[in-house]
Design a protein around this nucleic acid. Structure first.
Length: 269
DNA sequence: AACTACCTCAACCGCGATAGC
DNA sequence: AGCTATCGCGGTTGAGGTAGT
């Protein structure tokens, strides 16, 4: 027991548990630039950092690695987080995979400080049906509205990023355009109906070619052109996405064979 | 200006999974 | 097969910043 206490004391003295200094950041960045990441414990040692490997890994992934997005979570990102949380639950890393430049920590922090807090205010269990309904029928439409307002009020104020959206409010057709390697899909926005909001959801999630929505580039003029896949496991996300898209737009394209149940599959697997 | 309450987010902790010996 | 080291993830904490009074 005495040995254990001493070991703990030694660690607390040697291993810093304070914010990272710019000097430490530089050391870590420099070392990873030369040798790459991985083997975090030995990396910490050889980089001359008095930190645990875990600490170095966390600092790198959450703060130092290239292409991290800083600043507030945008309404588009919020919307994606909520939607993906329906599907993945508290699997923050999984959700973060679909938010380019955001870490699992960012997603987790957002959920905790915003969504969970709201559930608390409503005296709801964050995972209960009541709050799920609130998210689906109030929170998400509200986000969609924000996105819509931003997109229409200041098209010139684009956020220099992949969330660049084109929203066509009146034309009852889908328009697909490829801009800077992205796939932009525009769909009608019929504010009064539930389905319309869902359609708008799809509008803002089809943008980045690097994530699960990429597969939707196979859509042509809003019609699903090809969805037969020899390997459904690989294209699972595509499948869900396809169903969601189809159901969300069923009002506009009544000929579509997929129904709302398929959307439920996507949202509540 | 000073105090307080609240918010944000960087950082740490614990645990399970995996790899290597 | 069993042990140990390491990694990665989700949960939690708390310092610092900000808004409100």
């Amino acid at each position: 027991m005495e040995m254990e206490v001493k070991a703990t004391e030694r660690i607390s003295v040697e291993m810093r548990k304070v914010p990272w200094s710019s000097d430490e950041d530089s050391k870590l960045i420099h070392y990873i630039a030369l040798h790459g990441q991985g083997r975090w414990d030995s990396l910490a040692h050889f980089a001359g950092l008095k930190r645990t490997g875990k600490s170095c890994r966390l600092r790198w992934l959450n703060y130092l690695r290239p292409n991290l997005r800083r600043g507030k979570i945008t309404p588009q990102e919020q919307l994606l987080i909520v939607l993906l949380h329906f599907r993945f639950g508290n699997r923050w890393a999984k959700i973060a995979e679909n938010l380019p430049g955001r870490s699992d920590n960012d997603v987790k922090n957002y959920w905790r400080t915003k969504v969970q807090k709201h559930a608390k205010e409503l005296h709801c269990d964050v995972n209960g049906q009541l709050f799920q309904d609130f998210l689906l029928y109030q929170w998400l439409p509200s986000l969609a509205e924000q996105i819509h307002a931003t997109a229409t009020s200041s098209s010139q104020e684009h956020d220099d990023n992949m969330w660049n959206t084109e929203v066509n409010l009146n034309t009852p057709n889908f328009v697909q355009t490829g801009i800077n390697g992205s796939t932009n899909i525009t769909c009608p926005n019929v504010v009064s109906s539930t389905n319309s909001f869902e359609a708008e959801v799809m509008t803002v999630t089809l943008i980045d070619d690097s994530d699960i929505w990429t597969s939707l580039s196979s859509f042509e003029d809003g019609i699903i052109s090809d969805f037969s896949s020899p390997d459904m496991a690989v294209y699972e996300d595509q499948y869900y996405c396809h169903n969601y898209w189809a159901s969300a737009t069923s009002e506009i394209f009544p000929d579509e064979t997929l129904c709302l149940d398929d959307m439920d599959l996507w949202l509540f697997p």
